[in-house]
């Protein structure tokens, strides 16, 4: 179900409104006609004027003005709807120049997704009362007044467990240089191993895959520019170039096909502005396990940010700005 502040939702509401208007008019007319003009319900004068006789074309029943009106009415509605919706055509496939962006490559294979990071991402849970700070060769964890007990530091997949200082709620580790090229992750858990806080750095070149249950991680409050490519699951046969998939993020109401053989790939945009985990689905039939080709996307706050901005489409503003941007969408 797409979120409130998506292009989809704003447009859907408008279309729903006009559908209901058209529906009330058409169905109102239809049901009254059906009920009122039944045989024997209302005496109808002069049915003979049509001269329905077998073998002869009956007298025309027509009214030119009305017939023209029957073309004009739908035309008006259609023109109105088209004008209303035309802007969405560019809106869902373009980026606002002033907004910050985040680029990532999505690769679809039979039958899983790979997320190739082309831009580094450092993120940290906001609002947990815990702060991880890693500068140079000094790693500090501030967890005062929390139930945190243990700290795990994973660098390039190698995990080391440490304990927070029980009295200060702090932890300091010196001598481990922060390396922008290594996948690093610091997590804080409480005495029962419940995860309290995560800090993670994903360097350029990180590949996460839904086959291993990994989630796509995207920063919030930035327009994510997703480049989509379809690739074969096995490169040993040159005939096999991969198949069509479609990357669907129902939460933002957007999808785009992955077209094998299209070197430039296709592109789509999403603008997450709330933390959380949301589904990814494959929408284009791609063979046996198409229905299993699912994944999840985690929306996270970049280090130091809180993800409290509302960056999505505003119903209010799009209506206010209608005159300015040619009808909005």
């Amino acid at each position: 179900m797409p979120a409130e502040d998506t292009v989809f939702n704003v447009l859907y509401d408008k279309f729903m409104f006009w559908s209901i208007v058209v529906g009330i008019f058409t169905f109102g007319w239809m049901f009254i006609a059906m009920l009122r003009y039944r045989d024997g319900v209302e005496p109808v004068e002069n049915m003979d004027k049509y001269h329905i006789e077998v073998g002869s074309f009956p007298v025309d029943s027509h009214n030119t003005k009305l017939e023209v009106l029957f073309y004009v009415l739908p035309t008006v509605i259609v023109v109105w709807l088209t004008m209303m919706a035309l802007a969405s055509n560019t809106a869902v496939w373009s980026v606002d120049e002033n907004e910050p962006t985040y680029n990532i490559d999505i690769v679809g294979k039979q039958w899983f997704w790979e997320f190739h990071y082309t831009e580094a991402l450092t993120w940290e849970d906001p609002g947990t009362g815990i702060d991880v700070d890693w500068q140079g060769n000094m790693l500090m964890v501030h967890a005062q007044n929390t139930t945190g007990v243990n700290v795990t530091v994973a660098i390039d997949g190698v995990e080391t467990d440490y304990q927070l200082n029980a009295s200060t709620g702090m932890f300091a580790l010196s001598g481990v240089m922060f390396d922008v090229e290594l996948h690093s992750k610091v997590t804080v858990v409480d005495a029962d191993e419940n995860l309290l806080h995560t800090w993670e750095h994903l360097p350029v070149g990180t590949i996460l895959s839904s086959a291993g249950g990994q989630h796509l991680i995207l920063p919030c409050d930035k327009i994510s520019i997703l480049s989509l490519h379809s690739r074969p699951s096995d490169a040993s046969n040159p005939n096999y170039v991969g198949v069509q998939h479609s990357f669907w993020l129902p939460e933002w109401g957007v999808k785009e096909d992955l077209v094998p053989g299209l070197e430039a790939g296709t592109v789509m945009y999403a603008q997450p502005d709330d933390l959380g985990t949301f589904p990814i689905r494959c929408a284009e039939y791609c063979g046996m396990d198409h229905s299993k080709m699912q994944g999840n996307v985690d929306i996270v706050a970049t280090e130091g940010e809180t993800c409290e901005k509302d960056t999505g489409v505003k119903k209010q503003s799009s209506q206010d700005g209608e005159a300015a941007n040619g009808g909005g969408y």
Partner: peptide
Amino acid sequence: TLGGISGMFFPVAGLDVHFHD
């Protein structure tokens, strides 16, 4: 008529990106 009305939702890019498939 119902099918015709729901059909009007598809050609609109902003809606079709969600509805398609």
